[in-house]
Design a binder for these strands. Structure first.
Lengths: 368, 368
DNA sequence: GCCCTCACGTGTTACGTATAACGTCCAGGG
DNA sequence: CCCTGGACGTTATACGTAACACGTGAGGGC
């Protein structure tokens, strides 16, 4: 029984030079392990783990603990997270799946989520689902880590499909702005988008508009379906009011083109454009001006989301403000609750605010 | 007692309540391991590892390999990434540190980087450095994982400081748009921002502008220093030309306020505003209109970056287009080269393009 | 007939950590 | 003088994977 250690070349020790493998010649300074700390502190590895894990009260003397901490500090010891994750079977890390990186709304969601997570010693990683109609790649191919849970926007649905059967199958999931009827997630966080769109529509009705266009997002998602329903619901109560719908991808130029179509179509010109997002509204404003008209004198335009863009364009947009940070906070709180083995309470949709700015006004007088 | 193998849940506080009321026990299905696969395939775990790791050519028969794959499929086996990372000593994951999530430029950088990474089976995680002047939190507290390398924007400098001494110390680092003189990174990827600002300045000079304002970013960063230098350099060659500088945080409203100050200051009104970014330029346009003037008839405005915003505002901005995706591609290529133990070639700064749109025109005639 | 090689696998180990299960020493009570 | 028990640590695993080192037979060259 030759119990002597053979020449088992560990992957870390850089000895062979012929391998062209990844990380072959990177002479890394061989990070110290907890055993190294133990050796220099003159204690066992277990003690190091106890002290550094802050579980030593009443089990290790104050003096020894100080010794260990000192050794760890001088050696520059950092625990190996892969090993810790393996040992504990969890990573204290969750993934936030967003539709696109460029979307300011989700940047704010991240901020809120990361704040709550930090308080609980949990990390948040970001997975931007591939832009547009690209092939839905596996979020876990990108985040090739063990994750404890996922928070996902319903707008990233195609990316979510990749969850099923992927690494993340059966991972606790919190969905943002998703259909309450659909099955799946352990919890949901919704914004009262319906109320927002209702308020916008009523605002325009109160101003006197009777011919309106809903400039809808061409992206299929529950959040956008809700908007359409809310508009229809409000309009149904108003006499002699029509709303037609055109749709476009969520981009300025697409919004401009669609708005132009709507404004130059047959029949009397609509006097208001209800847009599914500020980006589309910005495009709509361009279309109005492109036709030699003015916002809001000739055509009123409303946005949605209250992005920075809403105040960058001329005129500043009447829009709907969304509590993005609170969405992130609540999503993370719910997920942490699930990870604790408890059931998060449902919670009502978060309230929105109608933001009145310069892009809406009464319609021009009829000149027939 | 029945010692169930695979202690599923955390032994934290399962003793608190034995409530069967709401199905509090989620009883995770105990993900199958490679050993489980081995058992059902009738082979050893080592063979499973070989087959699934695609290293079985000439070592395992075709028939056995098929058996293993079949067993893995039916069991729904997914390798435990924490274990793999521990064993291999690497994670095939890199972190992209960006200044802010909302910045479209970095969204495009991510896209480029993720594309290259995917080709090499490497994952990209995102760390948005805390917005504004918040306390620089540790990127590795957020991304609590073993990482192989980091790509960081110089605009996220405060976050980068957290690297020193943190988990990520001595991690291969690629810096984007950073001072070539500063030490540190294993590689750099720069964009020829200097050339871009030179072109913008020359463009305005050619149009006849002589009194200009540089609306600079208040964020301290090398990329912005370069812009100022480039303007000064070009202007020095032009007679009777003055450039004054005002600075503002990279936000629309701040840009508007700063531009207003610059336009209403003492002396003759400047005829052109050179802005460090499209966001500032959008604010500048608002300031011009707020003073009852027109862009570009009375004042020309130039942006930088060519974001979607540049085409959302009225008039569309003359600006400088940056090859953001290529920055990401090159950054990732360089990092992968470093991780391979090789030295990436320096590479010249990536070229930019002057994009002429509607926000620049000859200055109004002097009326003195 | 013997050894060598090849095809096909398996046993074993180590990665670095957290923790359950054991000692050991010594003070103090019975 | 033994037993109890707290204070202080240590030993011994196990997490799931990858890869080295080592068998087996079967076939073939000499």
């Amino acid at each position: 029984m030759c119990a002597v250690r053979g020449s088992t070349m560990t992957p870390r020790r850089t000895s062979s030079t012929d391998t062209t493998e990844y990380g072959a010649m990177t002479e890394r300074p061989a990070r110290p392990t907890s055993r190294d700390v133990a050796r220099t502190a003159g204690v066992s590895q277990a003690t190091v783990s106890l002290v550094l894990g802050d579980k030593w009260r009443g089990r290790v003397s104050e003096r020894t603990a100080a010794l260990v901490r000192e050794a760890a500090r001088t050696l520059g010891y950092r625990p190996n997270l892969a090993a810790r994750n393996l040992r504990l079977g969890r990573t204290r890390t969750v993934l936030l799946v967003v539709p696109a990186l460029t979307n300011e709304f989700f940047a704010r969601v991240y901020t809120g989520a990361a704040g709550v997570a930090a308080e609980h010693g949990v990390g948040v990683l970001l997975y931007p689902s591939p832009a547009g109609t690209g092939p839905a790649s596996d979020p876990f191919a990108s985040a090739r880590h063990a994750l404890d849970g996922v928070i996902a926007s319903s707008m990233a649905a195609e990316a979510l499909d990749a969850f099923r059967g992927a690494d993340g199958a059966d991972l606790p999931l919190v969905m943002l702005d998703s259909d309450p009827a659909a099955p799946g997630p352990a919890a949901r966080v919704n914004v009262d988008i319906e109320d927002g769109m209702r308020q916008v529509t009523r605002h325009l009705l109160d101003l006197g508009h009777r011919r309106m266009v809903h400039l809808a997002s061409a992206v299929p998602s529950w959040t956008f379906d809700v908007r359409a329903r809310a508009i229809a619901e409000v309009v149904r109560t108003a006499p002699d009011t029509t709303v037609t719908t055109v749709s476009a991808p969520l981009e300025v130029e697409a919004g401009r083109a669609a708005a132009e179509r709507a404004l130059t179509g047959p029949g009397p010109r609509p006097t208001a454009l209800i847009c599914d997002g500020d980006v589309l509204a910005a495009g709509a404003c361009k279309a109005v001006r492109g036709l030699g008209l003015r916002v809001p004198r000739d055509v009123s335009v409303t946005g949605f989301d209250d992005l920075a863009l809403a105040r960058a364009v001329e005129p500043e947009l009447t829009t709907v403000g969304l509590p993005a940070e609170r969405v992130g906070e609540r999503g993370m709180t719910a997920l942490l609750t699930v990870l604790d083995g408890r059931i998060p309470p449902p919670g009502a949709p978060l309230p929105v605010t109608l933001v009145l700015r310069a892009s809406t006004a009464p319609p021009p007088p009829e000149d027939d």
